[in-house]
């Protein structure tokens, strides 16, 4: 047994090809951009070594700070929304749903498979106000709630919220299915026993389910976190960062800096920051796991 699993040739065959491709295509560019971060301009245009200037610049850059704030808000809302709604849905499937379990589970997973560009276009039309009311506003109109009609993605106050709703909508089915699987793994008699002991819904969740699901919740949080930190495609598709900079994330700012401002060097610094944020955030979430 041991001998078979210590087979060096097999390990090399298993790991090396993937390791090479991965290192060259994924890791090397990161190191490369670390090198870029010491330069001004972009390759071919005003490309000069400037030492740590790009890093210092980050601290005084109000656009960067604004994007960071947007991004953090987005992370907290969407991460909690996706995981929370997913969990709620899963609990509902498990406890309330008697028939059509499979059908509904299937339907709820649907949006996950859609292309982001398509979802963005769909929601643009849903939130539309001019020249014609979109789905949401015309429904509000039909219900007589004319006071609530507003340019959902056309004003800074509601744009980020609208974007978050879209992203939660897309992903909650995904988390629901994962949590449902985890719930199925919990032995039925544990829950039955708790019910017999007179545990109500909330107590059941707090004392029985939450501890058992803890590991899964943390995995999902990390998963969602690493997706939301990189917030880019959905915001590009729905609002393109607007209005103003109300939905401009760090990644979008980085993209702008690199390609519109032609400052790939400074863009790399922002990219490295996103990377650090991602590492830091995940390790904080992991801390909760180790505690108990």
């Amino acid at each position: 047994m041991k001998k078979v699993l210590e087979n060096k040739t097999a390990i090399a065959i298993f790991v090396l090809p993937a390791l090479v491709i991965y290192s060259v295509i994924v890791i090397l560019p990161v190191i490369w951009s670390l090198y870029y971060s010491f330069y001004s301009g972009s390759p071919g245009l005003k490309w000069e070594f400037i030492g740590f200037d790009n890093f210092l610049r980050l601290f005084g850059d109000s656009n960067f700070k604004a994007s960071l704030a947007v991004n953090l808000k987005y992370i907290s809302i969407v991460m909690l929304g996706q995981v929370g709604m997913g969990l709620l849905l899963a609990l509902m499937f498990y406890f309330w749903l008697k028939r059509f379990k499979n059908v509904i589970r299937t339907l709820v997973f649907f949006p996950v498979v859609l292309p982001t560009v398509a979802v963005g276009q769909l929601f643009q039309k849903i939130y539309e106000i001019q020249p014609n009311y979109g789905l949401l506003n015309s429904l509000l109109n039909a219900l007589g709630l004319t006071g609530l009609i507003q340019p959902w993605i056309g004003q800074a106050s509601t744009a980020l919220g609208s974007l978050c709703v879209m992203d939660i909508w897309v992903a909650m089915g995904f988390y629901a299915v994962i949590f449902y699987g985890a719930l199925l793994d919990i032995p039925g008699d544990v829950i039955e026993a708790a019910k017999i002991d007179g545990a109500g819904g909330l107590q059941l969740f707090r004392y029985i389910l939450a501890p058992l699901l803890r590991a899964m919740i943390i995995t999902c949080l990390i998963f969602s976190f690493s997706g939301t930190v990189k917030m880019f495609e959905s915001a590009t598709a729905l609002t393109n960062g607007g209005p103003g900079a109300a939905t401009r994330s760090l990644s979008m700012y980085m993209y702008n800096v690199s390609f519109t401002y032609n400052k790939v060097g400074y863009g790399s610094v922002v990219a490295l920051f996103i990377f650090m944020l991602c590492v830091l955030g995940s390790s904080i979430i992991r801390k909760f796991d180790i505690k108990e």
Binding site: K2, L5, E6, N7, K8, A10, I11, F14, V15, A18, L19, Y22, I25, V26, I27, L28, P29, V30, W32, S33, Y36, S42, P43, S226, V229, K230, F232, S251, M254, Y255, S258, V264, S268, A271, L272, I274, F275, C278, V279, S282
Partner: peptide, 30 residues
């Protein structure tokens, strides 16, 4: 996970590390 070699765990971590990398960083170098 299953085979026994010194760097096993490290290599696993090294691969998992990739989910942290923002795609747009890699564009110009790639």
């Amino acid at each position: 996970t299953k085979m026994r070699w010194k760097l096993g765990e490290f290599v696993g971590k090294y691969f998992e590390f990739g989910i942290m990398i923002p795609v747009a960083t890699a564009l110009i170098p790639l």
